[in-house]
Design a protein around this nucleic acid. Sequence first.
DNA 1: GGTGAAAGCTAGCCGGC
DNA 2: GCCGGCTAGCTTTCACC
Lengths: 154, 154
Amino acid sequence: MDEIDRAIIRHLQQDGRLSNLALAERVNLTPAPCLRRVRRLEDQGVIRGYQAVVEPVALDQGFTVILEIDLAVYDRESVDNFETTMTGFAEVTELHRLFGTPDYYAHIATADLTAYESFLTEQVLTIPGIARVSSRFPMKKLKSPASAFGPDVA
Amino acid sequence: MDEIDRAIIRHLQQDGRLSNLALAERVNLTPAPCLRRVRRLEDQGVIRGYQAVVEPVALDQGFTVILEIDLAVYDRESVDNFETTMTGFAEVTELHRLFGTPDYYAHIATADLTAYESFLTEQVLTIPGIARVSSRFPMKKLKSPASAFGPDVA
DNA sequence: GGTGAAAGCTAGCCGGC
DNA sequence: GCCGGCTAGCTTTCACC
């Protein structure tokens, strides 16, 4: 993992569809060794995959809320059930189990406030064993991995 | 924006380097109209770009902390200065300005706890006008946009 | 790490529905 | 107006140096 590998990673983070030819040029290599490095980084798991970054509004996910959750019962069964259910929801874009309080921390993405209210009431609050939830509303998303492509339209 | 467009988006989110040929096959189209749809989605801004998803450990970002921040002075200058400084740090992977309390909510990614302490003390706490910060420590990342490629190694 | 050749892909054009 | 077939040109990828 030298400076060239790091440059390759940097370029592919900015444009995951860079052709091997263009990438090789940017890192001052010929295509063949460049491709070998990319394959090696992929095989080692350094590059985990490639994703299209999609405008959230187009997916009815333009409205994001940060949700803090505490469980009433914190045993193996409740934890497993809560985590399995939550990760299964498309609206849950991020979920962390924390040390301390709150027990969980999630990002919920819906089309709008109305859809958020429905999702919270009908999906999240019906999971057994939830003690309390608290919603924090972002006014502005200032930075995220997608910031490489300019500010969110949302 | 029909069912085929949504299928295209779904496949490109899972594998951003799918060739147009392979993509066309998966969505039951021939390559030419498939490519036209992809270009249209890109031009419309629905597909904002493509990124390689990199293992955070390899970037010395295997250790994530959720940081809540309150400003002592909430005027135009303090807000601008704080936001500009914070978004400039590579360690800040996400930053939201919130309605209500706390004022900001950030994700900080460093190599380990020691690096986190240095970053917090030497970078964040030296920004003028910060009233108070509070760190929340994730025990486990259960879901994130990168979950499409399996659980984090971290 | 670089070279060259075969295989495969992209992207524009034009006809059909 | 959108789809499909075709083709020219480029890119990827492999064996070999």
